[in-house]
């Protein structure tokens, strides 16, 4: 399977599918496809798995894409300014990714939910209780806000990260929290009470900006909702007609 990631901060991944190959993606993430691609929505893995996916911020149905006749291509994009990253999933190389990070994957990759193991990490780690697990074999693509950096942590090697800024990590990486040192730093340091600590071995992916931080940065500049404004089809029609 060939793929090409294009764009800078609003990336799109185009996957070329050979006959017999199949990819599946989060419903609604397809942007374009060649006319020979067959698209079919499926509750992959059955009802329970589909419900589990809903809890992990994904869609109940996933859409499968298969080419017919010859090669075909499909383009997928995320729903926020950010980066797409390919991950090679293999047995013994499972990835845990943040909620809603999954974009698309080869048929051999299994998407399921994973749970945060430690109570402290659930409430103060910044990624919540429910995560996504990518296992099986094949290529998977994840998407999250901001730019990504990746690091390979050796056995016992660790890194401290702002809570919520971890996109994904290999299943072998230990995810925990650690208190920020000093009362003054806790209250005025801007990082809060805890930091996330990741300890190797394994690969980790971090993001430069979270969707929450982006929303907070934009919030003061968003227009206030007018309570007396027109709404509905008639309102839209009038607004369009009047050029407002």
């Amino acid at each position: 399977m060939k793929y090409k990631i294009t764009g800078d901060n609003l990336q799109i991944v185009t996957i070329e599918l050979e006959p017999g190959e199949k990819v599946y993606a989060e419903a609604g993430s397809m942007v374009y496809m060649s006319p020979n691609i067959k698209m079919e929505a499926k509750a992959r893995g059955g009802l329970l798995k589909a419900i589990g996916r809903k809890f992990a911020g994904e869609t109940f149905f996933l859409t499968e894409f298969t080419p017919s006749g010859g090669k075909g291509f499909v383009g997928f994009a995320g729903n926020a300014p950010g980066t797409i990253m390919p991950l090679e999933i293999d047995s013994g190389k499972e990835f845990i990714v943040q909620k809603d990070a999954f974009l698309c994957a080869e048929d051999g990759v299994d998407l399921s939910i994973a749970f945060q193991k430690r109570l402290g990490a659930i409430f103060f780690g910044g990624e919540g209780f429910i995560l996504e697990r990518l296992s099986g074999k094949g290529m998977a693509f994840i998407h999250a806000c901001g730019d990504f950096i990746e690091m390979e942590l050796k056995e016992g090697e660790s890194i401290k990260v702002d809570t919520g800024s971890v996109v994904g990590w290999e299943a072998s990486v230990d995810y925990d929290i650690q208190r920020v040192k000093g009362i003054k730093t806790i209250f005025f340091g801007g990082e809060g009470l805890f930091l996330t600590t990741l300890r190797g071995p394994g690969k980790i992916i971090l993001q430069s900006m979270t969707l929450h931080n982006l929303a907070m940065a934009l919030a003061p500049f968003l227009p206030q909702q007018q309570t007396s404004g027109r709404s509905g089809i008639l309102g839209t029609f009038l607004d369009e007609t009047l050029g407002r």
């Binding site: 109570l119 103060f124 929290i177 650690q178 208190r179 040192k181 805890f194």
Partner: peptide, 12 residues
Amino acid sequence: LAIVYAIIKKPE
């Protein structure tokens, strides 16, 4: 829980 973890999870 935050207080407990603030005590347990000492910065290193």
